[in-house]
Each structure stands twice: as structure tokens, then as C-alpha cells.
Amino acid sequence: MASIYDFNAKSLAGEDTPLKRFEGTVLLIVNTASACGFTPQYKGLEALQQSFGARGFSVLGFPCNQFGRQEPGNAAEIGQFCSSNYAVSFPMFDKIDVNGENAHPLYKYLRGEKSGLLGSSIKWNFTKFLIDRSGKVVGRYAPTTTPESLTKDIEALL
């Protein structure tokens, strides 16, 4: 049976990153976009990273351009946007697809582990998956769910 630790993802810097690197860490995996109505959630995501990072937590951001073409930039532009606008310190990965035949294998796995209200497909940017320290997908949250509202769920896993 697969786990999130069986997947690799390319960082914004182009580095192939085994997710096994995050084993034992509580993770919040989020598909992001720079030109979305939910983009200000980067601020809340970074606040979670700052609050809980030292306790074994990390946000992992996966830019995606599948929803309204709201992430048109290349890796360098995405990194610059996240850094200059939100001082993002959590790992950001290269732009991926989260739905369809070209969906990143990690997202195929996440969708299979936790369906949303309307099925397994990701409906929009800033859908969030909460992963426990053993790599189990324990929660899926809609784009409208603010990062701040996840504090209790994250604390329960730390």
C-alpha cells in the first residue's frame, strides 16, 4: 500500500525531493495559486508554519494552474511572489496538475485517500490535506476553510 512517503516532487528550485524527507512530520499539503481570491491564505499558512514548525509541522505548497489559470508564472516567478508578498518559509514545489490524467501521482493518492464533499476531484485552489506523523491522510479541507481554523486539528496531531 502506498503512502505519501513513496512520492517525490520537484521543488521550485528544480530539486527532486523525496517526501520521505518529511517522515515523522505533521503536514498540511495545499494546492496554491498566486492570482486567486484565496491567495491571501498564504499569510495564514505561513502563520501555521511559524507557530508549529519547531514542533514537527510543515506546510507543503503545490502551485497549480488548473483553476481559472490563476497560477500562470514559472517557478522563479512563483517563488518571488511567495517570498516578497507573504514571506513564505515553508517548502514550495514546482507547478503541477492536481486533477486529470496528468495529475501528479501524489495528488492522485491524496484524492483517493480522502474525497471531498462532491467526490474525489480537487474543486479549486487552496484545497488542504492534513497528514499525521505516520503519513496517513487524516483530513481534507475545502478552499474556503481558512488555515487559522485548522489550529486545533494540527495541535491534536503534534
Rank of each mutant, 00 (worst) to 15 (best):
M1I: 11
S3W: 01
Y5I: 06
Y5R: 04
D6A: 13
F7V: 10
N8G: 05
A9I: 09
A9S: 11
K10G: 08
K10I: 15
S11K: 02
S11A: 13
A13S: 15
T17L: 09
T17G: 01
P18M: 03
P18R: 07
L19A: 12
L19E: 10
K20T: 15
K20V: 11
R21D: 11
R21M: 11
F22T: 04
F22M: 04
T25F: 05
T25Q: 13
V26E: 13
L27I: 09
L27K: 05
I29Q: 00
V30T: 10
V30G: 06
T32I: 00
T32F: 02
A33Y: 10
G37V: 01
T39I: 07
Y42T: 07
Y42D: 02
L45G: 05
E46T: 07
E46C: 01
A47P: 01
L48E: 11
Q49S: 10
Q49R: 07
Q50D: 13
S51C: 05
F52G: 09
A54G: 13
A54V: 03
A54N: 11
A54W: 01
F57S: 08
S58E: 08
S58C: 13
S58H: 04
G61I: 04
P63T: 11
P63R: 00
C64A: 15
N65P: 05
Q66I: 14
F67I: 13
G68I: 09
R69L: 09
Q70F: 10
P72F: 05
P72L: 03
G73C: 04
G73E: 03
G73K: 07
N74F: 01
N74G: 15
A75V: 08
A75H: 11
A76W: 06
A76F: 06
I78P: 00
G79D: 09
Q80I: 04
F81L: 04
F81W: 08
C82L: 14
C82K: 14
S83W: 03
V88D: 08
F90D: 01
D94W: 05
K95R: 07
K95Q: 03
K95F: 00
D97C: 12
D97A: 12
D97E: 14
G100R: 12
E101W: 05
N102Y: 04
N102H: 11
A103N: 04
H104M: 12
Y109S: 02
L110N: 00
R111E: 12
R111N: 09
E113S: 09
E113G: 02
K114G: 04
G116P: 06
L117S: 11
L118R: 05
G119E: 02
G119M: 05
S121V: 11
I122K: 02
K123G: 12
W124V: 01
W124E: 07
N125C: 03
K128G: 06
F129H: 06
F129L: 08
L130V: 03
I131Q: 03
R133S: 01
R133L: 06
S134N: 12
G135L: 15
G135E: 12
V137D: 06
V137C: 14
V138P: 02
G139N: 10
G139K: 07
R140P: 03
A142L: 09
T144R: 15
T145D: 12
E148T: 10
S149R: 08
S149E: 13
L150E: 06
D153I: 10
I154P: 10
E155C: 06
E155W: 02
E155T: 13
E155I: 04
L157A: 03
